[in-house]
Design a protein around this nucleic acid. Structure first.
Lengths: 248, 248
DNA sequence: AACCTTCTTTGGTCTATACCAGAAAGCTGG
DNA sequence: CCAGCTTTCTGGTATAGACCAAAGAAGGTT
């Protein structure tokens, strides 16, 4: 959202004042096509401050989700967040398009590998068993916002790597080609930072704040069939969910 | 100053090496009862670096959830995350105790106020209508990890402010005193930073990364009865959730 | 023993400067 | 017109030093 963070507090610290003076630059940048902010040295000069102080203010705005940066390319104003309904289970492209945004997927790798221990545990595999791993980067309005690592059970999806995985939705493939429908999903959510793999896939800086969404899909019989680890730029999404309580 | 060129065989960046040299301090601190790290100046001297560089490394570790800080008190090693099942809907104290941790609640304020617009919209109120607002800080193992603002419809819960809100669970009160049970919950999740209110309640620095969990409770007829905004220290929880997909 | 004041430590913030490596832009030759 | 090289710009990272305000400890007073 190009909205300037609410600054109504009486706090008059220099850094706070710096944020205020930064605000016009943000709203200016948000009108540009590429949402780009001026260079750090430029802003530093305009705002009469040091680069360290400026970067501290920018880091704060980044944590709030107002701005983000691309590795060695500069700072940008964050677009509005995408709403992600955890239980709707819409394929990525549908979800994005239903919100009048454009979606694109890049296939980074698709291969058979020995299952990492954490994946093996999730899928109920023994040590050393093999899985398909599919790594993809996904873009919303041409901004790289999501890095996903998918791990699938080969016995459920033989030869799935042959399909056009950059264009096809996996859940769609499951149903059309394998007659498998997801009966139950389990999520694990938490904040984290981007690993170097994820960071380079997203043109981000290693260590940027991120939202992790780990999802395990089960078939109609409750057996795990695949799992994926999603790493979102933290300012790119807002999660929603609505259900009846279970524990009662 | 004549900076000595680093050794020829460095495969990691200086900041990476700094993290490695920081590791022993972390494991040392985690054995202390209070999990406290040495002072910044102390660490800086031990690791032969600058305060700015050191703080950058610590900020990174903070973003990863390895360490956290308390305002003007210092740095600490983060305890293991609490698991928070969104659909179990356990009262806080039960959830915490079921994981062999200790829980405590501080009542910060409980009063009748004019509903903020966002709350009014969630609860289906007209502008200017009144609600009860309850603010609490919650501790796990005596660490302040959660700041909650609760907003309730007065017509559903007359005189609820009379109860001992620091000790009683709200959902428990709903059921016992008002015969109301939650029929449906809606969540909105996202990363954010601590507001100054939240920060001071948690002894945190304004602007620390946080996990927001907004929850709207509905009664058996689907009418909203209350909502709460939870702000967690982001390293304190891991969210889980398991359900059947709806959208299919 | 409870309270208040003083002093020291410590984190929070800021200034100023420097060098390196990747990205972008510009140039050049085929 | 394009591929490939070179230069420039820019962010990433680091050093050194400084002041302030809050927290905590120490000590004195009631």
């Amino acid at each position: 959202m190009p909205t300037v963070p609410d600054d109504t507090s009486h706090d008059a610290s220099p850094s706070h004042r710096l944020r205020e003076r930064l605000a016009p630059l943000l709203s200016l940048a948000s009108t540009r096509g590429d949402r780009r902010l001026p260079s750090e040295r430029d802003m530093m000069a305009r705002l009469q401050t040091t680069r360290i102080t400026l970067r501290e203010a920018l880091n704060e705005l980044e944590a709030e989700g107002c701005v983000y940066r691309e590795n060695r390319r500069g700072w940008f104003v964050s677009p509005p967040r995408l709403r992600y309904d955890l239980l709707a289970c819409l394929p990525f492209h549908e979800m994005v398009r239903s919100q009048q945004r454009s979606a694109r997927t890049l296939l980074l790798s698709a291969e058979e590998v020995i299952a990492p221990v954490t994946v093996a545990r999730r899928l109920g595999l023994a040590e050393g068993e093999r899985v398909y791993r599919i790594c993809r980067a996904r873009l919303v309005d041409e901004r790289r916002v999501l890095y996903v690592e998918h791990h699938l059970l080969p016995r459920c999806f033989p030869a799935i790597l042959e399909f056009d995985l950059a264009r096809e939705s996996l859940t769609e493939l499951y149903r059309r080609e394998y007659g498998i429908r997801v009966g139950r999903v389990s999520y694990e959510l938490g904040t984290c930072v981007l690993s170097s793999d994820a960071a380079s896939a997203l043109n981000a800086v290693r260590g940027s704040p991120a939202q992790r969404i780990t999802r395990i899909n089960h078939d109609q019989n409750g057996r795990a069939i695949d799992c994926d680890d999603e790493y979102w730029r933290h300012d790119a999404i807002e999660l929603t969910l609505s259900a009846a309580p279970q524990g009662v």
